[in-house]
Nucleic acid binder design. Structure first.
Lengths: 366, 366
DNA sequence: TTGTACGCGTTATCAA
DNA sequence: TTGATAACGCGTACAA
């Protein structure tokens, strides 16, 4: 055991150990391992052999310090709410992972929750020089006091949320347009009265207005999608109150609450649109148990295109987000920023949703 | 702008900058920021003020290098298969995150997929000295050539899978016992013939036997749970062939295939158990469309306790894994190892599942 | 082509 | 209580 190790202490082998064993200088070892060109093939082989025998792996902290750069990307997630039927966050994360790992990057995940403590931790890391860039899958940039992540001088890209007003390149779905299409789909089937299950109204956690003077007034996805629905309704010549808006918060329970509301109405809408599949699924289950037939009595369409939606009864029509493409595009944008000069204008990439036709929509009964 | 900065170049401020501004030595700055005790309160305040004004944040690469340790934990995930109805991996991840972030750690996620390339990357990081420890949520330790993660000399804990035979402390559900309870539940209702939808038979990716001489012969969860079911059946005095085993791979499609099989049988079992909720959900949807009534004609019970299972029709009975507790326990174990001497025997923490009674089970029709 | 020497930013040791 | 200095391991400019 000890015979195999030329170093004395029990710590990991360093370039010095390899150099000693190969009978060369440390700089030669470094060259042999990183620069393919300027080195004699014989010594190169000698060094590689010594490194192999010692099980040498370069110390990343030292390398990062020396180079002033690392191959780690910080992914900022919006905290707990990514466990449900809709798994947009996880899916985007997989797309990002695929694209970045291929380029030799590692992913540091930071879960942005309600605790200011966490946010401070995130800023420490961002400003700690260990990060090559960051992808934010949250509605707001982490910030502490008056410093936001944008001030860290790091390449940043936003995914799912459009943060371009804050100077951050973003990759988003065509949320507004997509929900308009969902509305048009139902209008095309003949529906004229709607129940809309919303996302959250406020922003969590509540914040002071940012230095730019205007933070978003509400949840980005909720605002965009509801606006899209209203566009469709108005274009069809209907009044805004053709849509009843049931407040929600991106979960199953919101669907149950909306169902209770629906069941209590004297004049029930013939179609329901939800800001997220979870709520639509909660709605369907609840009204079905009350004897309402979907889609005979009421059509339902969700948003996100959850895979499990194919297995509810009836299968849930939905606007599918191309999460894999969103993830890949965000990664691509980040890599460009990392490689680039840093003074490009923020780009906005829009990835279209696609209508997933399943059994939950039909023409209204006359 | 420039007036606010005492340093000349545009890079981040260092201890030297803070020291210059505060009129003290760099070592004093370091002490003021890390050691609460041995420093005069006046100088301490002076240093803190200077640091604040400069927006100083310690460079983590330099600190890690100097200390030979970091506050980053690597989480190894089993690649893509964590997007479905069952979200055990994501849920455990949340539990881990909660527990570790509270202690000031960051999470580096490494997605173990089919590519050997990735595995090598993981080993590079583990051996690169930037990692304080690792939590593995996969059936095997990453390995490259003859070196596995266990040889990195790092604290390691496994979650969801019992890797204690490989010397790794593990936190797992009582998979075998839980599935036996599921079987007993159905037996108690009067069922005597079963269809079991299995998990994958082999291990992905297929591997050479490890140096220890015996790798697992199949998927850990599949083996444990199926064994538990057989225990229940045998204890009830029934022969093994009271259970038909339909091959699967932890997805909706496996449930569809099992349903096709079920529908083609002359003598249909009266109860179905699935190794994972996804397959159970696929099964229910498919047989329901073929006119079979659940639970009147066939009872179904899943595994994992997915939240969406409450909203299928009928609601899916399931053995719920206490994923939050598994995550927290794994984190706790890892922290103990990081703080400890490193020569404790591997511990195995078993977290019991709990039966989620929903509408999908009932006594068999006579 | 290879070796010597330095510095990245931090913390710990030692002396004042 | 504070300051000067060395060292962590690596990559590179410069000299040989």
């Amino acid at each position: 055991m000890a015979s195999k190790r030329s170093r004395t202490n029990g710590s990991a082998p360093s370039v010095a150990d390899v150099a000693r064993r190969a009978g060369v200088a440390t700089s030669t070892v470094s060259r042999a391992l990183t620069m393919p060109g300027r080195i004699a093939e014989a010594t190169r082989a000698k060094v590689l052999k010594a490194a192999e025998e010692l099980g040498y792996k370069p110390n990343l902290a030292a390398r990062n310090l020396r180079l002033g750069a690392s191959k780690t990307v910080m992914i900022v997630l919006p905290g707990g709410l990514f466990v449900g039927a809709s798994q947009v966050i996880s899916e985007v994360l997989l797309g990002i992972d695929e694209a970045l790992v291929r380029e030799g990057y590692s992913l540091l995940i930071a879960n942005l929750d309600r605790f200011a403590e966490t946010e401070e931790h995130i800023m420490d890391i961002a400003l700690g020089g260990t990060i090559a860039g960051s992808i934010v899958l949250a509605s707001q940039l982490p910030q502490v006091g008056d410093r936001s992540l944008a001030d860290a001088g790091l390449p940043i890209v936003a995914g799912l949320f459009d943060l371009s007003p804050w100077g951050v390149s973003s990759v988003v779905s065509n949320d507004r347009e997509a929900m308009r299409q969902a509305g048009e789909h139902l209008l095309g089937l003949g529906h004229r009265s709607f129940l809309y299950i919303s996302g959250p109204d406020g922003v969590f956690p509540p914040r002071e207005p940012s230095r730019q003077g205007q933070g978003p007034k509400g949840n980005y996805h909720e605002m965009e999608r509801f606006a899209g629905l209203l566009e469709a309704v108005r274009e069809a010549g209907l009044p805004d109150d053709a849509v009843i808006r049931s407040p929600g918060s991106f979960d199953f329970e919101s669907g149950i609450a909306a169902a209770d509301r629906y069941l209590s109405l004297k004049h029930r809408p013939t179609a329901v649109l939800s800001c997220i599949d979870d709520s639509a699924i909660g709605f369907i289950k609840t009204v079905t148990q009350a004897g309402v037939r979907v889609p005979t009595d009421v059509s339902v369409i969700g948003f996100d295109g959850s895979r499990v939606g194919a297995f509810t009864s009836p299968g849930l029509a939905s606007m599918r987000q191309q999460t894999d493409e969103i993830g890949r595009a965000a990664a691509r944008l980040l890599l460009e920023q990392i490689g680039g000069s840093g003074d490009e204008a923020p780009a906005v990439v829009v990835v279209p949703c696609e209508l997933l036709s399943r059994e939950s929509t039909a023409p209204p009964r006359q």
